[in-house]
């Protein structure tokens, strides 16, 4: 019984030693403030515009249409250019052919 009491007393002394050495610490004020700011930055919700997706899809569709029209117009123009060039070549060839078969002019 005496031994038990001694142990309890020693444990109580050891507890007070732990209380002395295990004291709360204070985090740096800068750290606490900065972390608070970072948390708010991350959690800040992005602004959502109602119907934002519709506008986005509309713009993409319009851009696609404009692009397609441009491609078609460029194609037609290229085709016309080629046809024009062929026409010119054909005309020149015809002219050259006519000159070569025409009879020599008689001199009076």
């Amino acid at each position: 019984m005496k031994k038990m009491k001694t142990n309890d007393h020693e444990l109580a002394r050891f507890e007070s030693l732990l209380e002395t050495y295990l004291q709360p610490v204070t985090p740096r004020a800068d750290f606490v403030r900065e972390l608070h700011r970072r948390l708010l930055d991350v959690s800040r919700p992005s602004v959502k515009i109602p119907g934002e997706n519709h506008i986005r899809y509309g713009l993409i569709a319009a851009a696609s249409l404009a692009g397609s029209l441009l491609v078609v117009a460029t194609g037609i123009r290229a085709l016309l250019t080629v046809l024009g060039a062929l026409g010119i070549i054909h005309f020149v060839k015809q002219q050259v052919g006519e000159k070569s078969i025409s009879p020599p002019r008689l001199s009076i």
Binding site: P24, V25, T26, P27, V32, L35, H36, L39
Partner: peptide, 14 residues
């Protein structure tokens, strides 16, 4: 969340 943070940051840090 900021309120919870302020309430618990010290003890979590400790």
């Amino acid at each position: 969340f900021g309120t919870l943070y302020e309430r618990y940051v010290d003890r979590i840090y400790n």
